[in-house]
């Protein structure tokens, strides 16, 4: 298999890599770019632990080929905090005990941020459906919903 050379932007930084044509963006991020924040929980788009944004759209990195992202902009959990300051969502997850084991947390933060970027004031139902593709096995989701709503409220007030 001939490797492909790709130029892309991850969290605003220009990056280049080579990858096999059938290599997923998730494998590229984790194994070639050292960004292990996105997790592989299933590899089939059923758990959301690898959620990232691709040109502003929320996607599962396991369902994107590395070869597809030439010229694209990718956002991962590593890019959510700026200059060492936590994003309100990140702070709210800590404050509300919205994470336990934390393996789903990066994906949920990327997904929740993607929603709040579009809809700063979602209902609980909208939030629950938006996050339906992000499995969490520890929390029962209750505190996740509370944390996102609290962050949304703080972001609206800011």
């Amino acid at each position: 298999m001939k490797s492909i050379h790709i130029s892309t932007k991850v969290n605003g930084d220009a990056m280049e890599f080579v990858c096999a044509p059938d290599e997923s963006l998730l494998d590229v991020l984790r194994n070639r770019l050292g960004l292990t924040g996105a997790k592989e929980g299933c590899g089939t788009g059923d758990c959301g632990a690898c959620s990232v944004t691709l040109n502003g759209r929320l996607v599962c990195a396991c369902l994107v080929l590395g070869a597809e992202v030439d010229g694209a902009e990718i956002g991962t959990v590593e890019g959510i905090a700026t200059d060492g300051v936590l994003h309100p969502l990140q702070q709210a997850f800590i404050d509300h005990a919205a994470l336990q084991c934390g393996i789903c947390t990066p994906g949920i933060l990327v997904a929740a941020k993607s929603l709040l970027d579009r809809n700063p004031d979602p209902t609980d139902t909208e939030l629950r459906y938006w996050l339906a593709g992000n499995l969490c096995r520890c929390t029962g989701y209750d505190k996740i919903i509370a944390a996102v709503q609290d962050a949304a409220q703080k972001m609206r007030a800011a």
Binding site: A81, L86, Q90, I94, L99, G102, T105
Partner: peptide, 23 residues
């Protein structure tokens, strides 16, 4: 009381190292 968890920041920033995260 309900203080913040010490593993919180590592987990919300993607820095926490799980089983598959080391090489």
């Amino acid at each position: 009381t309900r203080p913040p968890r010490p593993d919180g920041i590592d987990k919300v920033t993607g820095r926490a190292q799980y089983g598959a995260d080391v090489s």
